[in-house]
């Protein structure tokens, strides 16, 4: 067990090193943009995975925590001058508090009831944000550029700093998942996921376990939202709070393999470039082919590899030990 955990950490370190070298030969701005978005979603989906995968609570409202992080860090910067390198922690904290506030009543619901409740809460905040003047309403908020800086997390001359920022984010969320896998809470999560009633009978405190997962997941998602806001320089309810974003955050983990360390990485590496490329080559004129491809891929993977694409790499007979059986 311990040796396996150490091997995984080592593998994570190797992956980090390789990914750090990856952007160096790339000069093309479009490809770098793709890399940044993919790395960002590796982190976001791993954050979702903590609650949805390890703990088994399928949230379809993570856009709320993403948007909270984006708006909080942006507004603190614009109104109080707090640099986003600190503001992202504030954004993460607000997102974590929101995740706890959503989780406390909703965790009493199981299965589909919970999933629908998370959608509804996120949509309420989306609709309120559309009508909230202090958030810029439907027209959104621009973040003014004041020169390249690691303090303000703004870079215009090169995309490389954002690659490393996104990589650091993805790596830290991965590390968080790795740490939690070995803690008591991590074991509780898997018990809660597999059979909440049996877990309770074994003195697992179900609600607190779920709340810990929600808080960590919300925090990490919020930080991702703040980084995204700095990268794009403009946020509005449609880009940081809308329902399709909730699905996009969950999908890499689902396609790659839920409740695993490598699932979100594998899923994002496949899904994000595919969806970006098909959108720019096929979706520009609104033909809908990009959506057909995207939806078709989801159906295909869900039916063909229900345990996620990671199952392809698992040793024979060992598959599914970590994909879980729900």
């Amino acid at each position: 067990m311990l040796r396996r955990r150490r091997r995984r950490l080592l593998a994570g370190g190797v992956a980090l090193l390789l990914l750090a070298l990856l952007p160096l030969p790339i000069g093309d701005v479009y490809t770098l943009n793709l890399l940044i978005l993919t790395l960002l979603y590796v982190g976001l989906s791993q954050a979702w995975n903590i609650l949805g995968g390890y703990c088994g609570q399928i949230s379809l409202g993570h856009a709320l925590y993403f948007g909270a992080g984006a708006y909080v860090s942006t507004l603190l910067y614009l109104h109080l001058g707090l640099p986003p390198s600190l503001g992202l922690f504030a954004g993460g904290l607000v997102a974590a508090v929101l995740a706890l506030a959503v989780g406390w009543p909703c965790f009493r619901l199981s299965g589909h009831y919970y999933a629908i409740a998370t959608i509804v809460v996120a949509v309420i905040f989306y609709l309120l944000a559309l009508n909230a003047d202090f958030l810029g309403g439907a027209s959104g908020v621009y973040i003014p550029f004041k020169g390249d800086s690691w303090v303000a997390l703004q870079f215009r001359t090169s995309k490389l700093p954002f690659v490393y920022l996104a990589l650091a984010y993805a790596a830290l969320v991965w590390l968080l998942a790795w740490i939690m896998e070995g803690t008591r809470a991590g074991f509780y999560w898997r018990a809660v996921k597999d059979d909440p009633i049996a877990a309770r009978s074994l003195a697992v405190r179900v609600l607190p376990s779920k709340l810990v997962a929600a808080g960590l997941s919300g925090f990490a998602t919020g930080v991702g939202g703040a980084i995204y806001a700095q990268y794009v320089g403009y946020i509005d309810p449609d880009s940081v709070l809308a329902m399709p974003l909730s699905i996009l955050i969950a999908l890499p983990a689902v396609l790659g393999g839920v409740g695993t360390l490598w699932g979100p990485l594998l899923g994002a590496a496949l899904l994000i470039p595919l969806s970006e490329l098909s959108r720019s080559y096929l979706g520009g004129s609104g033909h809908g082919v990009d959506l057909m491809l995207y939806g078709g891929l989801i159906m295909l993977v869900a039916l063909w590899r229900p345990e996620g694409l990671l199952g392809l790499f698992a040793r024979r007979g060992g598959a599914g030990t970590h994909a879980g059986t729900a």
Partner: peptide, 19 residues
């Protein structure tokens, strides 16, 4: 399906909706 039945059901109909 053998694994992750609840999740597969959710995402298969989501995929269909997008498609």
């Amino acid at each position: 399906v053998r694994a992750n039945r609840g999740m597969v059901q959710i995402f298969i109909t989501f995929g269909l909706a997008i498609f």
